[in-house]
């Protein structure tokens, strides 16, 4: 039996607003999708498991970890400004430029495995994406179909399988 690709989706809206995007991925059968609803859970999964694809939302809550909560309180005391997804990406990919120091970053972590899926427009994040060298970006809009998550996973796979 073919080994399933491991996918992590860090997205606080996965349970509610974006739940319809789960079905196509699970039913596709090739992907073992793990969902993290906050930064703490996302990092815990990243430390525990090697993922082939990691899809990150920009605005996510901190979760239970005190450090993430402190960071969230310090600069982003409301959801509108919480951009902890970017802090995760910087922490993993450019540690020296990160606000959050992440110890024990797994070796498998490379920019090409990462994608950003967010409500923020490209103009709001393009500088960060360039700096982080993340090539796959998708904005959540009303035109986003419930296959969008699957499509992103496949785009990343295309790059990593070259």
């Amino acid at each position: 039996m073919k080994k399933k690709q491991k996918v992590l989706w860090i997205e606080d809206g996965a349970r509610a607003d974006f739940q319809n995007m789960l079905g196509p991925v699970y039913v596709h059968g090739e992907y073992d999708l793990v969902v993290a609803l906050d930064a703490t859970t996302g990092i815990a999964h990243l430390r525990r498991t090697e993922f082939d694809v990691v899809i990150v939302d920009i605005r996510i809550p901190p979760g239970e970890d005190r450090n993430w909560r402190d960071l969230y309180k310090r600069g982003h005391s409301d959801n509108a400004n919480a951009r902890l997804g970017l802090d995760i990406l910087y922490g993993l990919l450019i540690p020296h430029a990160a606000r959050m120091r992440l110890d024990g970053i797994p070796r498998w972590v490379t920019a090409e495995r990462f994608a950003v899926f967010t409500v923020e427009s490209k103009t709001q994040v393009h500088l960060d994406l360039e700096r982080l060298n993340i090539r796959i970006y998708r904005q959540k809009t009303t035109e986003t179909t419930n296959r969008a998550l699957l499509e992103i996973i496949e785009e990343v796979r295309k790059i990593t399988s070259r």
């Binding site: 319809n20 789960l22 699970y26 039913v27």
Partner: peptide, 25 residues
């Protein structure tokens, strides 16, 4: 594969809110 999903969607889905989406698909 679909039979497997229909039998195991509860363990496959990360949370109860995901059931309808998986079963619909």
């Amino acid at each position: 594969n679909l039979l497997h999903i229909l039998r195991n969607y509860i363990s496959i889905a990360p949370f109860v809110e995901g059931y309808p989406s998986i079963l619909r698909e």
